[in-house]
């Protein structure tokens, strides 16, 4: 059995699912898990501003429902697009730690670049993605969310003699 984890996120999941399907074709007996890291941080930010009102009124139920709906929509769409049996899982807490914990015993991780793709370079990986990439206990497939950039987008080489 070959364990494959696909880290699906808003906006970038179609590319991840496409790569996961291709990978599943090429390995024996793929065992696929789709992992979504819930945006607890954003929810906590919204909760914090309620605290700023010194206790008058709250909104956490509705924000909680919205973040939960976000997870369900992404996972359902991703599962339907994959058209293969797969386990789905929502993880909570710090996204980079939670995703890393979900990789225990896996053979492959498929994830997408999620950084600033208008300026390629170090920032084309978001901080959470960077952490998972650095510490993944398995092989990693890193895909472009859109089409890959042309070879001519790389910056020119440093001039001769530069440090």
């Amino acid at each position: 059995m070959t364990g494959i984890t696909a880290w699906v996120e808003q906006a970038t999941w179609p590319a991840v699912i496409a790569a996961t399907a291709r990978l599943a074709e090429s390995v024996t007996d793929p065992d696929i898990a789709l992992v979504y890291a819930a945006d607890d941080d954003a929810r906590a930010v919204a909760g914090g501003s309620v605290r700023g009102l010194l206790g008058r009124r709250r909104n956490d139920d509705r924000v909680h429902a919205a973040t939960q709906a976000a997870a369900e929509v992404v996972l359902a769409d991703a599962l339907a697009t994959l058209a293969r049996p797969a386990a789905v899982r929502v993880v909570h807490g710090r996204p980079e730690r939670a995703v890393l914990a979900a990789l225990d015993g896996m053979d492959w991780l498929v994830l997408a670049r999620d950084g600033d793709l208008t300026r390629l370079g170090p920032h084309s990986l978001g901080p959470h993605t960077r952490f998972v990439l650095d510490h993944a206990p398995c092989d990693v497939v890193l895909v472009w969310p859109d089409s890959a950039p042309g070879i001519d987008t790389a910056p020119p080489p440093p001039p001769p003699g530069a440090p």
Partner: peptide, 28 residues
């Protein structure tokens, strides 16, 4: 804004399939 608009902003981000975080900060 804090109590009534923020949940709608989360729901809108979900409907559009984009991340809620920057928009949550914007509301706050």
């Amino acid at each position: 804004t804090v109590v009534l608009l923020t949940p709608v902003v989360f729901a809108t981000a979900t409907r559009l399939g984009v991340r809620a975080r920057p928009h949550a900060y914007a509301c706050t």
